[in-house]
Design a protein around this nucleic acid. Sequence first.
DNA 1: CGGGATGTTGAGCA
DNA 2: GTGCTCAACATCCC
Length: 277
Amino acid sequence: MPELPEVETVRRGLNKLVCGKQIRVVKINYERMIQSDLAVFQAYLTNQMIYEVNRRGKYLLFNLGEKTLVSHLRMEGKYLRFPSAEVPDNPHFHVFFELSSNETLVYQDVRKFGTMALVDTTALDDFFVRKKMGPEPTETAFDLKTFKLRLSESQKKIKPYLLDQSLVAGLGNIYVDEVLWLAKIHPSELARNLSPQKVAVLRNAVIAVLAEGVKRGGATIRSYKNALGLDGTMQEYLKVYGKTGQSCERCGTAIEKYKLSGRGTHFCPKCQKLKKI
DNA sequence: CGGGATGTTGAGCA
DNA sequence: GTGCTCAACATCCC
């Protein structure tokens, strides 16, 4: 569930659930997912108040005051809520937060790719600078001039470049295919080949598609129910992702799928033509 | 059953 | 620096 709209939906769910509550006890079953010092993590979180849950890109940020718990869901991370300290056994439950309300927040991750780290709240900006995290996909933060310049200077293909988070934060494999379809750009198009007009269209598509995803509560694909924030309907509005062989909504041509930089890539061969050089 | 794919990211290599 | 491949891991689908 982890592109920006899904993470934002989870953030909203978490915010309602844990805001103003205290963590009584933290139990960690899979220590490797804690990237910062484990003993500090354990000690600091014990009896710690959660003030609010924020988000940057695909990262969840639990504001604990002086420190912030930074959580990334990667491919399949999920937060679940249980009404008491009694939590069923499950081999994929890795971190347990017992809250002052007696509820338990559980982090579940089948593939164990997710990460958590404790970061000084004042060092958060620096943390994301070091990760080369681009701006949030909003009208104000996502600057067109900078976007144009970066694209014009790159040899990269547009889809892998958009996925690396440095141009703009939050796109993943589903939404990037949707954005490129909306903007009528071939995923393998070289970034520098895009005209200034196309770049402007692309920026608008990024902002619009991710905003629509948030509005629909994210997409639920290959996910279980009952996870926080996972009642999204965006999957019903997808135009190309997972639509191989189905008709393009704009022109009726069959949607095709190929592999680009190791990622399944869906596009309309008629609407999204590669520029001939 | 074996191989490939799955919503991410970053290490390592040419 | 840049651009690509692959590994971390478990499950599902053909």
